[in-house]
């Protein structure tokens, strides 16, 4: 197994900059093991990431990687896929990246149903900039910009993505590392836009403000939430379930349009 990590990581960049007990490392480990299952050529895979703690993932993984501007990871990934449809695209975003500044890109990537896998690492806060509340901070939880607790409700990403038109949507916790690996494999085989919301942890900027204990305690708490899934509202619902549907894929439709336009002898403009 050690050899797998050596194969897919840029070892000169390690140890990574993430805080002790950060969930990003666990997600990246699961991704590496999923890549081992998928056996793609490293030159055929593109890892795109936005800004934030999760944005560092593209720097540590040894594939074709692209570290893009804040919230625009999906826009860049759409461009790559449109230019080179043979490539396998994996987009890593944080919750602030995907739902706050990149919210519009997220819903339109879902709507287009372009063939790629988006992995949203949801740690319920803007970790890198100092723990401001994000659209994914649960109501009542404290943040540096909400010292008495947030007033706003959080997004339900799988429901949002489904409504926007994504064809494979799932939520998984980092406690379910093996399930996460399976879901990444499943999502990459799926033809269309696949979105995985990974509930992660930020022990430093989120956990400490909310008295959630050390990283191990936060993981144990997540286990409790996953076990009681389906009983409560919001974050507690549907862990590990997959919502899958069949819709026309963007690149295929685009190619059909090209063939159609060529038959007519170009457009009339």
């Amino acid at each position: 197994m050690c050899a797998v990590y050596h194969k897919y990581l840029r070892l000169d960049h390690l140890p990574h900059i993430w805080c002790p007990g950060c969930g990003n490392g666990i997600v990246m480990g699961a991704f590496i093991r999923a890549m081992e299952d998928l056996k793609y050529d490293q030159n055929e895979v593109v890892v795109v990431s936005g800004i934030g703690c999760s944005g560092r993932i593209s720097g540590y993984l040894d594939f074709n990687t692209l570290h893009t501007t804040h919230g625009r990871a999906l826009a860049f990934a759409t461009g790559i896929k449109a230019a080179e449809p043979r490539l396998k695209i994996f987009v890593f975003m944080g919750d602030g990246d995907a739902t706050a500044i990149g919210g519009n890109h997220l819903i339109h990537a879902c709507r287009r149903n372009i063939d790629m896998t988006a992995i949203i690492i949801n740690n319920c806060t803007f970790g890198m900039t100092g723990g401001q509340f994000s659209p994914m901070t649960p109501k009542g939880k404290k943040a540096s910009t909400a010292p008495y607790g947030t007033v706003e409700r959080n997004f339900d990403i799988p429901a949002l993505a489904q409504a926007a038109g994504a064809t494979l949507v799932a939520r998984v916790g980092i406690y379910q590392v093996n399930l996460l690996r399976e879901l990444i494999v499943k999502a990459s085989h799926h033809k269309g836009f696949a979105l995985l919301e990974v509930i992660s942890q930020c022990p430093v900027n989120y956990g400490r403000r909310n008295q959630m204990g050390d990283p191990a305690e936060m993981l144990e708490d997540q286990k409790g939430i996953i076990k009681s899934a389906g009983l409560g509202q919001g974050l507690e619902n549907y862990f590990g379930q997959i919502f899958q549907s069949e819709q026309p894929e963007f690149i295929e439709e685009y190619n059909k349009m090209i063939v159609q336009a060529q038959k007519k002898g170009g457009c009339d403009v």
């Binding site: 140890p15 805080c19 050390d214 191990a216």
Partner: peptide
């Protein structure tokens, strides 16, 4: 077990989960 002490950041997850 192989353990790399230089990379360890003392998060305590392995100790709690073993």
């Amino acid at each position: 077990l192989h353990f790399d002490r230089e990379k360890c950041k003392a998060c305590g997850i392995c100790i709690a989960f073993c």
